[in-house]
Design a protein around this nucleic acid. Sequence first.
RNA 1: GCUCCCUUCGUCUAGUGGCCCAGGACACUGCCCUCUCAAGGCGGGAACACGAGUUCGAGUCUCGUAGGGAGCACCA
Length: 466
Amino acid sequence: MTVRTRFAPSPTGFLHIGGARTALYCWLESRRRGGEFLLRIEDTDRERSTDVAVQAILDAMQWLGLEADHAPVYQTHRLERYRKVADQLVAAGKAYYAYESKDEIEAMREAAMANGEKPRYNGYYRDRNEPLRDDPNRVIRFRNPSEGSVVFDDKVKGRIEWANAELDDLVIFRSDGWPTYNFAVVVDDIDMGITEVIRGDDHVNNTPRQINIYHALGGTVPEFAHLPMILDKEGKKLSKRTSAVSVMEYRDDGFLPHALLNYLVRLGWSHGDQEIFSRDEMIALFDVADVNKAASRFDTEKLAWLNQHYLKTDDPQVLAPELVWHLARAGADVTAGPAPAEVIVALRDRVHTLKEMAERAMIWYAPIVDWDDKAVAKHLKNDSAAGVLETAKALLAGCEWNPEPIHQVIEQVATKLELGMGKIAQPLRVAMTGTQVSPSIDHTIYLAGRTEALRRIDAAIEIASA
RNA sequence: GCUCCCUUCGUCUAGUGGCCCAGGACACUGCCCUCUCAAGGCGGGAACACGAGUUCGAGUCUCGUAGGGAGCACCA
């Protein structure tokens, strides 16, 4: 039997970090075992589902490169199927109609709680055999076994046993004519031939109910793997207020998709001491059975380290389009500056994200507007600056325009004026950038281009001798 | 309240009864390198939640305690 996994988000918002990890694990598991990875959009909540969210999720999946093997399945397209299956269940006596109003159910729940019991449906219509009637409150409830227990071997959590006495007769079809989650999931997973259900562990509690429905439907119960949650830095549930939760926010913040994936795969899973995983390595080595049981915290700093690792090791030519995207966002005219691949080489040891890189690269794509007062005072307004700039300018006007010759020019200036490198590099750095910080001075000058470099030195000489 | 789940450095984790007075990585930190900032190199501090038990021997097995989490919907 071919292994089939699925990722089944409900389109009520953007794809968030936890969902992305679930999708990644589903995808990896199917890839390693030569199976298929499917996508299902769980949009039966007509109140909260939106087309915008569907598109956002699809976009994020694509950005991450988690391609599905078939077109997505939309639950809203399958209403007829759910109806048919529910009717079969009723006909077989495995489900029944019930007519309580939501208020009555609420009262039932409160009464149970007051009694120190679990809030459950009391099964009033379970064995009444009342004839079918029209009623705005009519729902279909699943006749859950009242005795025995459900046992399953979770690939992450281990053996879990649940007494049927703890379960009540859940609604599988709402009064508005739509199926509920627990029912639709099972019907879909059977129809789609899902063999491995990998999902967040907030679903552990639903699993026994679903297994009972599998049995009632005569379906083969799949393997389950419930993934622990991802918490924020404080150990709280991830929330928009405290951290970036949307996958696309990470793109906007300058992270590479494979850096995010590498971070996510190591969050809750490991392979010895290995930290860096290529896509192929992940596929070859990942196994849901090795996922940890405990929740883990999202650490942006480690993600940043990984991101820089890929910035440093990926081919600059391949990375260039990514930087261009961020440069454009930063307002740069990319045609008015150096080749992006060269900028990457100059800055990749100094930044953690592409966004940061684009911001720093602006010194080569736009004129200096903000002069750092301290930098000017310290490195331009001193006895040697003007002379250094004049000397450098003269030599730079005629040298070959590459980092190495430019470096030689700077050394010549140092020798000629009998000054240390610090006295030479800093004034030039301020001239080039308006600040005290930049990549090595030879590269900084080189990337500015000869015309612009000389122009900036002129401007700095004016300031220095003013 | 009830049911289920979880617990190794600040964080992610290695560890499947002796190889562990607990290893790696991020973060922090000292030194080196150095034209700034980084990157890099070499070091450092830092953890088995607690208590019983099983065993010659427990981070590893069992049971309790404490703490944390999830669920208990006509949401998914």
